[in-house]
Design a protein around this nucleic acid. Structure first.
Length: 432
RNA sequence: UCCCCGAUAGCUCAAUGGUAGAGCACCCGGCUGUUAACCGGGUUGUUGUAGGUUCGAGCCCUACUCGGGGAGCCA
């Protein structure tokens, strides 16, 4: 019986005859010799088919089978320096499951519009394959990081009755006799869970109806939101940098081939070790004030170009903390040392990618929080359950949100977050 | 919501206001070491839509549609 194996395990089978099942990634023919690049999901291997070594029908069929033909090939595994990847299969038998002609995505260039239209097929390309496998490693690393530190994963609801931070960017959906909204953030629910379990995190999809068309925006994206009871701003700043360092280290360890396929400069990733540089808003503002290209005005939030300027000052992500209260959310606690500032932090990824984390210590005083809700003209009734958390055993607590796609795009060195999610949802694209 | 850019063969693109083309894909043939193979031959068009200017529009003008990049806002 011939053993079925996968491309990623070929090194263990050198000198043996195995069966591989997959698809033709590319092929070329030299008369009495076909080279088939076989893709099986775990990698790509070159299969060499000499006319005299295989049944004539198979040789003939392979000559007429294009990209993405599905097939099984049986052959001897050899180490060969001439083959991409270092191994190749000397084919002796095989079976074509479906012969394909005219697969729409060729190894040549395609425009982004066309590729997005064909996303269900584009997933098979080496680039998408590599990015999505990095995404998987990032997710696994995040879960193991929190698990090892005693965090409990809690799931926040996707249907919500109200906004966390205003209603303008919510997707509305009919909900029996009521209107529901798709969640923008699991934070408020994470706060409730933190009071129950101490250290928690949520990990789920979030939805924003922002009419943003930039390389940093999706309408549906995944967010990881840890929340720590008795945690302070300093605690979550340390947590954030340790998390990012852990994730990058795990990707370097587990996905070197994928990073190579993406032509990612791994030397830059190897520098991502804690601690990260920290800047107060005031310090960051001073840097921007001296920078000729910045249009920043003190008191404003940093624009995307400002974030790029700041992040380019360092070879690691930078933590920017204590922003003016006017530009931050109602639930953020003020800094007792400077009441015009919030105990909050944004983490800007390195290499100019911009914000990947936003977090804060939360306001834990009932009266102060109620005042904020009124100041921001938020529907008080809807926040009664949230205020309960300050009525019954309120404690200092803090947390942050990490944008998964922005993190994956940053680690992969890809420009646009739409490539960091299997099926991106953007303002003008709902399909496939 | 605002600003900028684009739409020509299945794909990526070219075409001074004057006969709509190339490469790839696909089909046929050749080649025992290709790396996006190569060589020879072949098929492929309502130039996004609707008007307008002109002897003549892919090209100039207007509107619209679809998409891309960015601003704001955010992860």
């Amino acid at each position: 019986m011939i053993e079925v194996t996968s491309v990623e395990r070929l090194a263990q089978h050198v000198g043996k005859t195995v069966c591989l099942r997959g698809w033709i990634y590319n092929s070329s023919s030299k008369g009495k010799l076909h080279f088939v690049q076989l893709r099986d999901g775990t990698g790509i291997v070159q299969c060499v088919v000499f006319k005299n070594n295989v049944p004539p029908e198979l040789f003939e069929q392979l000559g007429h089978s294009g990209q993405e033909t599905s097939l099984s090939l049986v052959g001897l595994v050899k180490a060969d320096a001439r083959a991409p990847g270092g191994f190749e299969i000397d084919v002796t038998q095989g079976e074509i499951h479906q012969s394909v002609q005219g697969y729409p995505i060729t190894p040549k260039e395609h425009g982004i519009e066309y590729l997005l239209e064909q996303r269900h097929l584009w997933l098979r390309s080496k680039r998408s394959w590599a990015i999505l496998r990095v995404r998987d490693a990032v997710i696994t690393a995040i879960r193991s990081f929190f698990d090892e530190r005693g965090f409990v994963c809690v799931d926040s609801p996707i249907f919500t009755p109200n906004a966390c931070e205003g209603t303008s960017t919510l997707f509305e959906v009919p909900y029996f006799e009521q209107t529901a909204y798709l969640t923008q953030s699991g934070q408020l629910y994470a706060e409730a869970a933190a009071m129950a379990m101490g250290k928690v995190y949520t990990f789920g999809p979030t939805f924003r109806a922002e009419k943003s068309k930039t390389r940093r925006h999706l309408t549906e994206f995944w967010m990881i939101e840890p929340e720590v009871a008795y945690g302070t701003l300093d605690d979550i700043m340390v947590l954030a940098e340790e998390l990012l360092a852990h994730v990058v280290a795990q990707v370097l360890l587990r996905r070197p081939e994928e990073l190579a396929a993406l032509e990612r400069d791994v030397e830059k990733l190897k520098k991502i070790v804690a601690p990260f540089p920290r800047l107060s808003y005031d310090e960051a503002a001073a840097i921007l004030a001296k920078h000729p290209e910045s249009t920043f005005k003190y008191g404003d939030d940093f624009g995307a170009p400002d974030e790029t300027i700041l992040s380019n000052q360092f070879d690691r992500p930078v933590l920017v903390h204590r922003y003016p209260k006017e530009i931050k959310a109602f639930y953020m606690k003020r800094d007792p040392a400077q009441p015009d500032k919030c105990l909050c932090v944004d983490v800007l990824g390195s290499e100019g990618v911009g914000e990947i984390i936003g977090g804060s210590q939360r306001e834990d005083d009932y009266e102060v929080l109620l005042g904020r809700i009124r100041e921001h003209k938020l529907p008080e009734v809807a926040f009664q359950w949230y205020l309960d958390l300050r009525r019954y055993g309120s404690v200092p607590h803090a947390g942050f949100g990490l944008g998964l796609e922005r993190t994956v795009a940053w680690i992969c060195g890809v420009e646009h977050v739409r490539e960091a999610i299997p099926f991106p949802r953007t303002i003008y694209r709902l399909t496939p």
